[in-house]
Write a protein that binds this DNA or RNA. Structure first.
Length: 305
DNA sequence: ATCGGGATTGCCT
DNA sequence: GGCAATCCCGATG
């Protein structure tokens, strides 16, 4: 019935108009022609993601009119983490190239009681200072010696939101280049959905640097956040809440469902089937029928248990 | 001064 | 799915 339509309609709405133009179809075909036969099997999904939205109509009028200001960031951490979903992170490179990605996965780190946060117990260090700065302040920290993670501070002492995954929207070739620089020579080319599907991957793909730490996402000229003019906030029923990733050592706090992602989106880094099953029963949608899924979104829907 | 571990990733089996 | 890579930060002495 209509139940499953809740999945990824927002995404489809954002992508479909571009695909319907003849120019876009040509672009897709060109991209697909470069793919192997095996990859073509997933062409429906890849179509959506291979769209090269260079200077698409969303961004040609006036970039700044969609920019989110400091008010947006001034909300509680969990609230902000959810509000980020569907918003567009923009990186303006030195040569004027603009890279864009839609945020599809975040995590909330509350500080204070939250033992898994760098700012647990109100602990302020040289590294995490940005977490205590005004909402909208970027917190970039190195991890495992080789990678970076990007957060944005929210309302609340020491609270911040980790950005975990983006759907690449614009500048995929540049992103691929930036990502390939760290990979083995001769490795296969990354699919679009693999460019930003992880916290450190998105930093590489958008060339988010350590020096961005403590800068203001609401006013910076090299990186900012935009509302997508064609889609509203993510609907609650489209947001999956799951335990955060990679913090198992923090006991009880590791279980808090403070990772948020758009259900069924192919760019999410780790799908949590259990959380999705619970979300499903919580919404009392139990009799799914795959035949009523719009074809544009079919590939984006997770297999329900 | 030293030491242990990490909000990850990519390659290998 | 296992595991190495790789080094900075922060805690400890």
């Amino acid at each position: 019935m209509a139940g499953r339509k809740r999945k990824m309609l927002a995404l489809a709405a954002a992508v479909a108009p571009e695909q319907s133009t003849s120019t876009r179809n040509h672009s897709n075909r060109t991209e697909l022609n470069r793919s192997t036969t095996k990859q073509k099997k997933h062409s429906k999904c890849e179509n959506a993601l291979n769209v090269e939205t260079e200077r698409s109509h969303y961004f040609t009028t006036n970039d700044l009119q969609h920019r989110l200001g400091e008010d947006f960031f001034n909300q509680p951490c969990i609230s902000l983490a959810k509000a980020f979903l569907g918003k567009v992170l923009v990186r303006r490179c030195a040569d004027g190239t603009e890279l864009r990605g839609r945020i599809v996965e975040t995590e909330a780190y509350l500080g204070g009681e939250d033992k898994a946060s760098h700012s647990a117990g109100g602990k302020r260090t040289e590294r995490n200072t940005a977490m205590f700065m005004k909402p909208g302040t970027i917190y970039v920290y190195p991890i495992y010696g080789i990678y970076l993670c990007m957060n944005v501070s929210s309302e609340g002492e020491g609270a911040a939101v980790l950005l975990r995954s983006l759907e690449p929207l614009q500048g995929q070739p540049v992103m691929r280049e930036l990502r390939a620089a760290r990979r083995k020579e001769g490795a296969r080319q990354l699919k679009n959905k693999e460019l930003c599907n992880g916290p450190s991957k998105l930093c590489q793909a958008l060339n988010i640097l350590r020096c961005f730490d403590r800068r203001d996402l609401a006013s910076d000229t090299e990186v900012w956040l935009e509302r997508d003019p064609d889609i509203g906030p993510a609907k609650p029923q489209d947001i999956i809440s799951a335990p955060r990733i990679g913090i198992e050592s923090h006991g009880e706090w590791a279980k808090k469902p403070w990772r948020f992602y758009l259900c069924g989106h192919p760019c999410v880094s780790v799908v949590n089937k259990e959380a999705e099953r619970q979300s499903l029963s919580g919404n009392a949608i139990n009799n799914l029928d795959s035949s009523d899924v719009p074809f544009e979104t079919e590939q984006h829907n997770v297999k329900r248990p």
